[in-house]
């Protein structure tokens, strides 16, 4: 069955894709930190951050429509915060509206909070999208390990990544079988069948986990995971990091 939704564009050949994953992780994490620690009133700085990430996206040749669609995950949370904005009572009133007897006012302070969150969250999400769409997940995990992330955690993550597709395939097949055999029926019946499916999936996955372990043992696994790494830092990687860091610093100093 089809699941090409994880790291979908990671096999494009572009300048960004060819960079060392470690360099990308460090640079984009620096980008996130710079964005988060910028004052909400530095509008120029945010515009420049936006331009920077847009240029990086252009270099990476990832279709803009895809980026736009991906970045919409932020909407529910922004809506949730937006709902609470009228309840900030402090500051100058920017406008108001009323529902019957309930009167709500929006203050400039409240709007500032919303702007602050919106712009920062969006820029950070864009940088994360750039990281994941320009790097194969297996390489990203390897790079995390190289960067001294707790190795057990990273190895569990890479196991998970390997089996997501297998487990999901199993679930999709079960769902297809269920749909082929059930017509009508009450909602409660469907909920019960779906829950039973999760139960079956758990048992099969648990058994699969044990089988995987036995297979590993038969090949000489002794609790230690060895990873063959083929990363090589080149001059252009260092150049990229240096350029990104200096641009970020310049924006930070002159943008605010």
């Amino acid at each position: 069955m089809k699941h090409a939704y994880i790291d979908e564009y990671s096999d494009i050949d572009s300048y960004i894709h060819r960079l060392d994953p470690r360099i990308k992780i460090i640079s984009l994490f620096a980008f996130i930190l710079f964005v988060i620690f910028t004052r909400p009133t530095s509008f120029i700085a945010f515009a420049l951050y936006g331009v920077l990430i847009a240029v990086l996206f252009l270099l990476s040749k990832i279709p803009p429509g895809f980026i736009l669609k991906r970045s919409l995950v932020i909407i529910p949370f922004v809506l949730m915060v937006a709902i609470f904005i009228p309840f900030f009572k402090k500051g100058e009133i920017a406008g108001g509206y009323s529902f019957g007897t309930l009167k709500l006012t929006v203050t400039y302070d409240g709007l500032m909070i919303l702007w602050n969150i919106l712009v920062k969250a969006y820029l950070c999400i864009l940088s994360m999208i750039l990281l994941i769409t320009s790097t194969k997940l297996s390489n990203l995990l390897k790079a995390l390990e190289k960067l001294k992330f707790p190795s057990v955690f990273v190895i569990i993550l890479s196991f998970m990544y390997r089996y997501i597709f297998v487990v999901q395939d199993e679930l999709m097949k079960m769902k297809q079988a269920k749909e082929a055999r059930t017509t009508g029926g009450s909602r409660w019946f469907h909920v019960k069948v779906l829950a039973n499916m999760i139960g079956v999936l758990f048992m099969r996955t648990y058994e699969r986990g044990e089988n995987v372990y036995f297979a590993m043992c038969s090949r000489g696994f002794n609790g230690k995971i060895k990873i063959i790494t083929g990363f090589e830092l080149k001059m252009k990687d260092f150049c990229f990091m240096l350029i990104i860091m200096s641009i970020l610093t310049v924006i930070r100093i002159f943008g605010s």
Partner: peptide
């Protein structure tokens, strides 16, 4: 779990990940 931990936790995470994708009416 000793050295069974890594594979077992890995597949179980994949299981929860998949289970979260199943939509209930």
């Amino acid at each position: 779990l000793k050295d069974r931990m890594v594979p077992l936790m890995g597949v179980m995470a994949a299981f929860i990940f998949a289970a979260q994708m199943l939509n209930f009416p």
